[in-house]
């Protein structure tokens, strides 16, 4: 029998209906089903969740933090995307 190390999984928990799943950490497990079972024991011992997602860590693709400035720069220069950019005359409500 090979001494294969269990793969790494990222764990996402939905804490209650209506909220999105949120990354909580990672763990090792032989397959997805066991990863969900382990996540139940490791990350929800105090009713922290009603739903669990697991994704094998190797399948996560991330942006490069070193490129963050240029990647997010376009949003920084477009202040007109925010409502506070606009002048609204005094006395106008419901806007």
């Amino acid at each position: 029998m090979s001494k294969k190390e269990w793969p790494l999984w990222e764990v996402f928990i939905r804490s209650k209906a209506g909220l999105n799943h949120k990354h909580v950490g990672s763990l090792r497990a032989a397959d997805a089903t066991m990863a969900v079972e382990n996540a139940r024991d490791v990350y929800t011992r105090r009713s922290e969740g009603i739903s669990i997602w697991v994704v094998e860590s190797m399948n996560i693709h991330a942006s490069d933090p070193a490129e963050a400035d240029s990647l997010f720069e376009p949003a920084d220069s477009k202040v007109y995307r925010h409502p506070t950019f606009y002048d609204v005359p005094d006395g106008i409500s419901h806007m």
Partner: peptide, 13 residues
């Protein structure tokens, strides 16, 4: 146990 879990995962796959 770790080996059995691997074997079971392979079988399930």
């Amino acid at each position: 146990v770790r080996e059995a879990a691997n074997a079971f995962a392979e079988k399930r796959a």
